[in-house]
Design a protein around this nucleic acid. Structure first.
Lengths: 193, 193
DNA sequence: CAGGTAGCGATACCTCGGGTATCGAAACCT
DNA sequence: AGGTTTCGATACCCGAGGTATCGCTACCTG
């Protein structure tokens, strides 16, 4: 039964270089901004050939999306109740977007996706959907409601980032939380209704 | 006193072609999307040379910003009270962003601005600031509060537009209004406090 | 009418960045 | 040893923003 799952494919195995590329991506974006962080420069910063990058990711956007997935990791959904889970999730996203490079990369790939349906599909399916589903389960809210919350939270944070170049300050993140948290269905209503 | 203000400068006067270019810009963006709406194509659609466009606007971004200013016009701030003014303003922005071409152009220029500080400055100074000041006066809210409202409203609408390619549906715009309007200072508190 | 100035269309051009293609050299398996 | 795939290097294509040149045209002033 050696052929079950991971019967190593023939040929030279890939070098375990993804993490290095992710790190190089974020640091390059941090130093030069999204537009000037070319794939060429990222590859050089990672000590890798440009062709190697394009062998792993079909486009710059796909690379950035995977890089963001790596940077964000799983959403923290622990909390005594739903209001607390929502609060911690918003603070988590705000903090991630505030990390140097991450916010720029996020805003940049989002921007590219506006004019690129293929990238939009990648961003939606690989990045947004997993978090959306996790939030639906954690909050017990319907899909369209969670999508609305995502639009508000991520849209607000990215707009601030895009217009000022700086992440949203603590006080405004708190205002954002105070605006949204009252909208989640309280735990008591979930079981009874 | 013929030299007071508008002593016409020497040389051939400019042809009154701005409106044609604005219309061509929106229709080209509507048909091809932001990225493929090149300055070349816009110029051809307007029946104008590319060099003429660049003589009037220093960059594609600046052209789009002026085009959006023309498309948006002054903000409607009439309303019996502040809550009503806020409501009508949000519906107005949502409707404008929903117009074919306008939303794409807005999202596109915003995206470009993320990686282009010069364009960000143009967008902030020429587009956002006038509306921000008008809202400050109409709502009697401090600058940072109005900036927060703009982040939430515009950010949410653009995020929806960017992720789905479609403007936000009526029901969600209403949800957005119901979320924000309670946050504006009521008229009664403004004079008494 | 002559001369100066500046917008206009046309066109050629530069630059940069995403993405592709090719090649010889490795690395791994059977 | 032979097959298969990756790797780095490099050259290349293409589209788009932006610049520059040039002959022409419209307008004003003297």
């Amino acid at each position: 039964m050696t052929s079950t799952a991971a019967a190593r494919p023939p040929g030279r195995p890939r070098a375990g270089v993804n993490d290095v590329v992710f790190a190089a991506t974020l640091s390059t974006v941090r130093e030069l901004g999204y537009a000037r962080a070319t794939v060429e420069r990222i590859a050089v910063a990672a000590g890798v050939a440009k062709s190697t990058v394009y062998r792993r990711w079909p486009s710059k956007g796909a690379l950035i999306v995977d890089c963001l997935l790596d940077a964000f990791g799983p959403a923290p959904l622990e909390g005594a109740d739903r209001a607390e889970a929502m609060t911690s999730a918003i603070r988590w996203i705000a903090a991630k977007i505030g990390e140097p490079g991450v916010g720029d990369a996020f805003a940049g790939v989002f921007s590219d996706a506006v004019s690129d349906p293929a990238l939009r599909e990648i961003l939606s399916a690989r990045f947004q959907d997993p978090y959306r589903i996790a939030f639906q389960n954690a909050l017990g809210e319907p899909e369209n409601r969670v999508l609305f919350f995502i639009d508000v939270v991520v849209g607000t944070l990215l707009h601030r980032m895009g217009m000022t170049g700086e992440p949203m300050v603590e006080a405004d993140v708190t205002a954002l939380i105070e605006m949204i948290v009252p909208l989640v269905t309280p735990d008591s209503a979930a079981g009874t209704a």
